[in-house]
Simulated scan of single mutants.
Amino acid sequence: MRLEKHIALVTGAGRGIGQGIALALADAGADVAVADLDINIARETAARIEKSGRRSIALQVDVADPDSVNAMIEGAEAALGPLGITVNNAGVISIKSVGELTLEDWERVMQVNVRGIFLCTQAALRVMRPRGFGRIINIASIAGKIGFPDLSHYSASKFAVIGFSNAVAKEVAAEGITVNALCPGIVGTGMWRGEEGLAGRWREAGETEEQSWARHQKTLLPQGVAQTPADMGQLAVYLASAEHVTGQAIAVDGGFSL
């Protein structure tokens, strides 16, 4: 699947899953606008894309701010051309039981993970609909299909992303635009790794974080191994090229979820 002559935008693309998706789209031939709250890491990803021979630009964005989102879309199009593919990946997480959660914890996750997806999707549709073409990929999670302890607020936000994506897909289905949710499984990024991640929090007595990480891969995943940002990139490339796949929430999780 090739994406030459397509312009893509990926939010939260400075590291992790967003970076993996941005690099995969570039490898498939797209020119890619790399957006992140941290402009320095966005520039690093953009430099890697340019080194591979594709055009790229780094943009700073706060996805919860409508003015910032609109400026991101305008900046991407001014630098690269008409936007055809948008991957709304930017998100945040904290790991707390429902009893530990504060209102501030809840609102921060909802502001970025739900409001941000809404604002970025709406802004992308403003430029896509008049052209009769678009591919919108909203990054959800397997936690948007199956609830996880200590992640009630995060799961709620990702269930919302899936429902929102399915509804919007039906609104624009006859306009040449597809909208899908991509649901990463267990990826060795900040959500899972480190003492503050799930592998650290869910350690058994006498277990190191590394041992906990290995155990969760073996017990939760039928394939027995974690997924990678590059795995997410493979699905993103497919969804960016698929004409008749829309309204779906597709997991890349080694067989964990339905």
Score class of each variant (00 low, 15 high):
S56H: 02
E74K: 13
N40H: 14
G91E: 01
E74W: 01
D31M: 09
G29E: 07
N70E: 13
V92C: 11
V63M: 02
L23Q: 12
A76N: 06
G75N: 06
V63E: 00
Q19V: 13
G91P: 14
L25G: 11
A58H: 01
N89D: 14
L80E: 06
G75C: 06
I17H: 09
V63Y: 00
E44D: 15
V61S: 02
R43S: 08
S68E: 06
A28P: 07
A64T: 11
V92P: 07
A47W: 02
A42F: 06
A26D: 05
N70D: 15
A30M: 08
S68G: 13
A64F: 05
T86N: 14
I17P: 09
I17R: 11
G20Y: 03
G91D: 02
G16Q: 10
D27Y: 03
T45Y: 08
A35W: 03
A76I: 04
D67R: 06
A26F: 10
T86E: 07
L59P: 01
G53R: 05
A26M: 09
I93R: 01
I17S: 10
R48I: 15
G91F: 10
E44K: 15
A71Q: 12
D27S: 14
S56F: 02
I85E: 00
A71W: 01
N88G: 05
V32Y: 12
A58D: 04
S52T: 14
L83A: 09
P66C: 02
A76L: 05
Q60M: 12
V69G: 01
A58K: 03
M72V: 05
E77N: 14
